[in-house]
Nucleic acid binder design. Structure first.
Lengths: 264, 264
DNA sequence: ACATTAACTGCCACATATTGCAACATCAAA
DNA sequence: TTTGATGTTGCAATATGTGGCAGTTAATGT
């Protein structure tokens, strides 16, 4: 019988392996049938791939597919934080705004860390961050290039800041930025604790194609002293619960879109 | 589409190499067939191009094409467990060379991480490092200022490297530096795996008041391809077991002092 | 400008690797 | 136990890799 028609462009073996590992870290498990269809190869080929990766100790084979060994270690660091569910929802919604191939800036903070963890399923991203934990986490996700911004480390944030950070940041062409913040003030603006932080975030709004703030609901009532420059030019604010109507109204006047994320 | 993507039917060799690398960094992998058709040259020619670029260490060849270089090395988390006792001894001895108030450079690697952990008792240090884990660990130790060097993150090392790293590094006045290495060769020199690594370490020897290599005994017999510039100007080599007499002799001829650390 | 040299390229033959197919063994759930 | 899906293995087909060789092209020196 004549062999099946060969597709002109076929994924190279290592490409498949990367994708398999990426799906694993995103979904926790993969099935042979699903992968075979996705790559348009036979199931045997997929099984051979899985066997190979299993021999390298990078996954475990189960009947019907494969599963990862370490049950999401990253989630651990999040669970210790408060409002973990809300942050996860924000992370998922934020990751949904990202397209393959983009250059992404991730600010420091626990909410942006949740965004980082939700991006495991995406391809070919260039990540630019000043956060040690985000860099450490994302550098192990296949197909992501991580650029760490250098500078003095702030122990509270576990992130770099200062002259070097600002300087190098400006050299990136950033498609989308996710920024943290100190509070969502009653007049519909995101505000910050420190002068340096507000300045850095304002700068990033100007640099990035689109800039989103990610804030969980614990930041709603609060007041912090510094407004963020260029706030009206931000693309949106992603939150995990709907704020008071007055706040929503005020925010809509300012410009940025309000995105309320829910768990599924 | 990018305006760069149009090329004459036939391009000179260096032009092809540029385009290949461009596609590689954009797509993660390239196939021989696809490139041959695009440049309108034979597959052999493309393979020769890839071989050349591979010899320069700029990509990795796989069956059917080439992929971005990600040598599937044993993860750092695995390596750190090997010879833990020896590394701890080295760390303690190395920390003993540091005085309060110094500016300390710490290279990436598992042995230098042990040095970082052993420095907990010291005060008023300024730490300069490219390693994410070292920065994350030391930033929580009271009385230490940590400066993270930025750059592209190498997943295997969990550390920054590249242009930005070298550039910023040079701005520090470093009192003492602790460097890793790939191997301690039989002729009494420390050698390295990669061009970039050797260059960065050689640069640091020149910059630091005193530079010490820290190498555990598993690195003794090995051979790696690149010598480290300025090695004779290093202050010493800290190890956890006495190497063969011939190696000791060779090392003493080269200059650096040999320091054998023991667990007490 | 000319000649010489070195490098590049394509073609060929042969070695190797990857993949799909088919037959058979195993597993898991009803 | 039955049944459908999944895993395993040998084999053949196709794609890819390698080295030698000859023709061509670019680079260099005179």
């Amino acid at each position: 019988m004549s062999p099946v028609s060969r597709l002109p462009a076929r994924a190279l073996a290592p490409r498949r392996h990367d994708e398999i590992l990426r799906r694993l870290s995103a979904q926790g498990s993969v099935s042979v049938a699903e992968l075979a269809e996705f790559f348009d190869v036979s199931r045997e080929t997929i099984r051979r791939d899985l066997k190979l990766l299993s021999d390298q100790g990078r996954l475990g084979i189960v009947h019907g597919g494969a599963a990862r060994f370490e049950p999401s270690e990253p989630a651990m660091s999040l669970r210790s934080q408060e409002n973990a569910g809300g942050k996860a929802a924000i992370g998922k919604a934020a990751a949904g705004l990202v397209r393959d191939g983009m250059v992404v800036f991730l600010d420091s903070g626990t909410t942006t860390l949740a965004v980082a963890q939700a991006m495991a399923g995406l391809h070919d991203l260039t990540i630019c961050t000043a956060s040690l934990k985000i860099a450490l986490h994302l550098c192990h996700v296949p197909g992501m290039r991580v650029h760490m911004l250098g500078g003095e480390i702030d122990p509270g944030e576990e992130a770099a800041s200062g002259i070097d950070t600002l300087e190098v940041m400006a050299r990136f062409r950033v498609d989308i930025a996710f920024l943290g913040g100190g509070a969502l003030s009653p007049d519909g603006e995101v505000t910050d604790f420190t002068r340096a932080g507000a300045e850095q975030r304002g700068r990033m709004i100007a640099l990035a194609g689109k800039a989103y703030f990610v804030l969980d609901s614990s930041k709603f009532g609060k007041l912090t002293p510094l407004r963020i420059p260029n706030f009206d030019r931000a693309a949106g604010v992603v939150v995990d619960a709907s704020p008071e109507p007055a706040l929503v109204e005020a925010l809509s006047q300012n410009g940025p879109e309000l995105i309320v994320a829910t768990l599924m």
